[in-house]
Each structure stands twice: as C-alpha cells, then as structure tokens.
Write a protein that binds this DNA or RNA. Structure first.
Lengths: 216, 216, 216, 216
DNA sequence: AATGAATGAGACTTCATTCAT
DNA sequence: AATGAATGAAGTCTCATTCAT
C-alpha cells in the first residue's frame, strides 16, 4: 500500500530534556544552516564515493542530520545533486577569482594557472578532480544541469578574460581541466607538459602572437 | 610503450564443449561469445544510465543473458567495470587509428582530428562523451584502473605521434577530450574554438613553429 | 541514487547447516508452494487489517516468508491484490457451489441461501464480509479488477441459475451480499428480513409467480 | 429511532475570536469553517484514493490547510474517518430525503429510487459508490463506527417508510445499495434488472400484494 | 558448467506526529 | 491558538550475491 497504518503510534519519546542544557546529545530541533550542511555533505560524499556510491544515508551521516531530514529539505537525489553541483561551481569560480586577484598581468596569470593545475592534480584526496568528473558525467546525460554547466564554463572564461583575449581564455579554461586530470591520473610527469601546453595556447594571444595567422 | 598488458584475467569459459551436442531444451545453454556480449552490454548500460544507474540486472537484460550468468563469468561489479573500461579503451584507440590511417601528413591529421571532435560532440546518444567521463570519474578514485587509463592516454598519444612531435601529440590528446565535452555540453558554438585551439597547439609544432621558444 | 554501492558485501552467512536436519530453523531455500502461502496470507491480512492496513511486512510474516521474497514472487502490491482477489472469488464460488450441491429444487436452494447469509453474517472474524467490501472498494477505483469482479458476479449467478430463472438468480446474488452486510453490521435482528426479502424476490420466479405482471 | 446522537465530539474550535482583528501577515490565520473544509477534504480524498491511499498530507492539501492544523483539529486519523463517515451519512440521507420529497405515492417513489440508483451507478467519478464501500469496509472491522452505520441504515429506511411498509423499506434500502454497485461495476446492462428487482420487492408490499402470503 | 530461485541488506520515500515558536 | 520544521518508524522496492540443482 502507499499509505501507512492509521493506528496510533505514540512512541515513548525522550521527555524533552532540560532546555538550554544538552543539545549535542541528540535533540537539535531548531537548526537553521542545516540545508547548508547537507549541501556540503553532498559534495564530500560524492568526492569520496562517486555519485554511484552516494546515498541519502551517507549524506545524512556526513551532515550529522537525521535521515528523515533529507527528503524534507530536498525533494530527492536529483535536487540534491543539482544543488551540490551549483555549490561546486560557485566554489570553483570563487577560488579561481581569488587566486587570480593578485595577478597584475597575463604573465602573473599564467603562473597562477599552472599553480592551480598543480594543486588540483596533486591534492589528496583529489576533490576537484573527482567532483569535476562526476558532474561532467552527470551533465552529459541530464540536460537539466546544462545551465549550471554553462555558468561554470562562462564564469571561468569570464575571469580569465581579464587577462587574456576571449579565445585564449576559452581555450585555457578547457586546457586547465584536461591538464589537471592528466597530471592527476597518468603515470608520466606532467609538469613540463602543462607549462608547454599553456605556453602554446598563450602564444596565439595578441600581445605576444602578432596576429592569428597560424590558422590554416 | 610501457603500457602493461591488462587483457583477460581469469578466462573461466570452457574451451568450447563438444559442439552439436546437447541442450536444445533451454535455448542457448552453449553460448560462447557470451562474455563478449556482456562486456558490450556493460558499456551500453553505462552510456545510458551512468555507473550510478548500472546494475547486474540491467546488464544481464541488455546482454540477453541469465542473471545468474553474471557472477559466474565475472567476480563482481569491479571486474565488470574494469573489463568494460578496457574494451572502451581498445575501441577508442582502434577508432582513432582507423580514422587517421588515410592522413598523409600533419595537415590531413589536423582535419581528421577536428572531424572526430565534431562527431563525438554531436553524437546522439553521446556515447563517447558519457563513457569517457564515467571512466575518468572511476579512475580518479580507483588506482586499480590506472593501468587502463595509461594505456588509453599513451595509446592515443602514440598514434598522434606519427604526425606530430611528442609534446604536441600529448597536448592534442588532452585538448581533443576537453573540446569534445565543451562542444557537447556548452551553449556556445564551439567549432571555431576547436579549430583555433588545435591550431595554436600545432603552432608550437616543429615543422611550423621554428622551435619551442615560446616557453617562458 | 537508484543503484546501490558496488563495493563488496560478502556477509557471513550461516555456513549451511547440516542438510536434511533442521530446516525449520530458518533455511528453506527450496520451497515450492510458497506463492500459494503468500496468496493465502494476503487474504488473511486484508481480512484482519483492511487493505489500508496491509503491508508487505505483515503478509511476509503471516506467510512465514522473508520480506525479500515478496517482490520476487510478485511485482508489487497491485499484483498481490489482484491475485488475492482472484483466489477470494474462486473460493467464494467453490463454496457456493459446494453448499448448493445437495439442493434438489429451488425450495432447498432457498434454505441453503439463507443459511449461507446467516453464516457469513455471524462469522467471527467476519472474513467474507471484510474481504467482499475491501475488494468492492478496490474494484470501484481500479478498472483492472473488473474482469475478476465479473467472474465473481457471473459465477455466482450462474450457479444460482441452476435453481432459478436468470433474472431471479441475478437479483438473489445481489441480495445475498447486501443482506449479509446488513445482518453483520446493523443493530436489528435480520433473520426474518432476509427470509422475507428472498421470498419476495423468488415470488417473481416463474414456478410460483405466474408471470411477471407485477412490473408496472 | 434508537439511533444515538453521534455529532461532534470534542469541538476544540474557539467560539470565533474577535473578528476583524489581527494577522493579515500569514493569510488565513483566523479561519473558522476550517474544520468543515477538512471534513469535506477527507471525503474527497477517500473517494479518490481509498482509505488505503489517504494521508494527513493529502487531506491538508485538498483542504488548503497547513499540515500542522490536522492534528490540532483532529486527534488522529480515526477521528478524521469517523467525522468523515458521519458527514457522508448526513449527506446521503439529506439527498435521499430531498429527492423523494416530490413523490406523492409509492409509484412516484419507485421511479425516483430507480433514478437514484442510475445516477449513482453512472456518476463519474463514482463518489457514492467509492465512499459507501470504503465505509462499509471500515465498519466491519471497527465497532466504533457501528452507531454511524445504524444511523445510515435506519435513516434511509425511515425515509422510505413514508412510502412503503417497514419491511419493504428495509429491503429496498439494501437492494438500492447492491444494485448501484452491480450497475456501476459489472459488465451487463443493469437497467432492467434494477427495475425488475425493485418491482418484485414492492410486489410484496401491502397496497399491491394483498398481504404477505408469499413467504412459505 | 551453468542457472533459476531465493534472500538479507539497504536503497529512497512518505508517513503521522511532536515541539519550539 | 496555531503552525512550520523536524524526525523516527515504516513503507515499497531493488540490489548483489548465494546455493541447490
């Protein structure tokens, strides 16, 4: 049946512990910021277990929230993933912006970009790498996530455009992601490769490249 | 090159029992090629549902094989994913090789590369895109898959090295993957971007770029 | 997610108890007739708790079957209800047939009919009454059950037609059900009412009623 | 007659607080008639989903009332069902009375009775049919509802007694219910059957039947 | 060698009800 | 007086895996 038994249930609940006291024991009835914690937990669980290994239970445990809370705050896994994805994008953009803030020119920017790639590729656990691939995998099959993906792409490129021409910025954005994966997974040493790849792309950049005559 | 051999592990199948003999009762009691079909089914199911939506049941249905066969031929989901990943890499490499075969020089190769990106990005359903991201997501968390990932990376680069210097080949390999995702998912028109990105990378290539002096 | 974690689960199962021995302990891996028991359990649980109070758990407990068996043998509650309803109808028809078998003429039949009404109305627990109303309630909202309902109606009338003309049989069938409920639920003494009601309906019956001139 | 009074039990509602006062903040903080709407909603939800598919949530939504209101105005599902059942009975009796009001003699009454059966059997959605069976099912298992059921039965019979002798009235009441279900559910055309059934029962009625000598 | 039947664990979800406000 | 937020229990269902055949 899709309905439960209507007979009385009246369990013997803890008779409301002395108010003001405990609260870390297990009561927390009023808990704003709970949604926040859940969204953070979503990202943590996905990063550790992949979307395939993600469950309401794990998220609830990670967020220190009762299982029943999950579908109270979120309609289902879909909404949870969307909200998590959104936060991941926001955090990623904020970080890129933050890291690039000290850069005065494209030369500085290049150095920082390579540093970011290095950090993300060698981070342990590989949070960015794991989350980015999980969400890329999701967005390919779920058009409802396209908007968030576009915010990601356009946001990143937008930040890079402060230092590079639009095309260069777009290419760099793509390359950063790919280089991070390569360095994070592949056997070979990737540092020089990343530097070279970035250099080549930037070589087509107007202040250096004296025109885009390299295109056939 | 240093990619190890990760082909079949634990080929449990009988060396083809006396053909023509028994068991027309239950159709297909003797069914070599079953393992094959299962591996194909793995890829089909993952492409459609993601690893998160993949189950023995769905694979068995897709392969038209009894559910009990699954754990008979494969020890578990892990082995299934590894074997599937392996086949995906083999197929991807074979395709790249096949497509590039007619290319006489790096100019031909560039055109074909762009065509491949275009095809994979616009394919419906997006099989390459889906499988590549699912497996990238897996390999990040599961070191046991590193060998296969390296075979993929090195295989692709190896093929490209017939037309480009090693560094260019590596970068192109990374860029192809990233451009395919971008064009497959993002809002903007990606065709010119892809062409430009590839051009810039190749610009650092020796026949054109007169040395690699672009690196800082 | 709609898939479960693919990591190993390998629980420590009871290491297969001495075969031939226990079996009532908890093992029963081969158990034909299980479907049968489940269907019987469905009827028992509905009769006791109503459809609203019916759950897989209760049915499984009643049938002494693991909970996981339920959705293995039946696709869901809908199929369970349909199958239960079918059995209820079969049993009801078999009983009517059985009870009426000794009747040599319509006079005998009338007595038996009144006896059946009496039994069903005073049975404790009121199995027929409960099941009939539960299923009537279901069939009203679920057209998929119409066929079974028709089998019930036509089956009952068919049996009664051996003793009465078709119209009389139909009316009697309806009246029996209504009288049983009335006698089972209402405060007043229903015995004479039932006898009178049946008598009046049969009064329109050809051997007695000399034509149907009573219709306006 | 001996039907007891089962009207409101525990009318918790305030005796209408100073109207015109506060709380336009949250719309409808002062909302007498809320209890009414909830009871109507109970019937609507049961008619659509059956008791098995009824929940506080659905009722609250249907009544456009906050979920928290439900257990504030009603102690639980049991009270909700009782109150709903009561209203259903009141409405059914009022309708029967209303429809029969124009009838001058038993001939008129017979026509109206058949019309009511026809209407209820063909109504879409089948509100009367659904509610009557749901409540019959409930009352069989729950003695606390017997009083309401008796009010229903005796009320209906009481109204019919204005046109027919007591026995005829009782039988007609039973038959009406059974005929409505039959016509609403079964495959066969039920119109003539209903007319014939009613005619036969009425044939035993004193103005026509010259005594009740039909009983064996 | 191969598999259909079976099952316990755990998945998501909805529920009635409580409680702080 | 009234309710939004919260939650533990229980709901249905699917899962990977085992085991007798």
């Amino acid at each position: 049946m899709d309905a439960q038994d209507h007979s009385a249930r009246k369990e013997v609940l803890p008779p409301s512990p002395a108010p003001g006291v405990a609260s870390a024991l297990r009561i927390r009835r009023f808990d704003p910021d709970r949604r926040n914690r859940i969204v953070d937990a979503v990202l943590a669980v996905i990063a550790d277990n992949g979307v395939a290994g993600t469950s309401f239970r794990k998220i609830a445990t990670q967020a220190d929230v009762p299982l029943g809370s999950m579908t109270y705050h979120f309609s289902g896994m879909q909404e949870l993933l969307e909200t998590g994805f959104e936060r991941f994008v926001s955090q990623s953009l904020a970080r890129l912006e933050d890291r690039l803030k000290p850069a005065r020119d494209h030369r500085d920017a290049r150095g920082i970009i390579l540093a970011i790639v290095h950090e993300d590729a060698t981070a342990d656990p590989p949070r960015y790498l794991a989350l980015s691939r999980e969400f890329q995998a999701l967005v390919i099959r779920d058009p409802a996530l396209r908007n968030i993906a576009n915010k990601w792409v356009e946001g990143s490129a937008g930040i890079l455009k402060r230092y590079f021409d639009p095309i260069t910025a777009e290419i760099l954005e793509i390359l950063m992601d790919g280089l991070t994966l390569r360095r994070g997974v592949a056997r070979m040493e990737g540092e020089p490769l990343a530097a070279d790849a970035v250099a080549r792309v930037i070589a087509g950049f107007w202040p250096l490249g004296a025109g885009k005559d390299t295109v056939s």
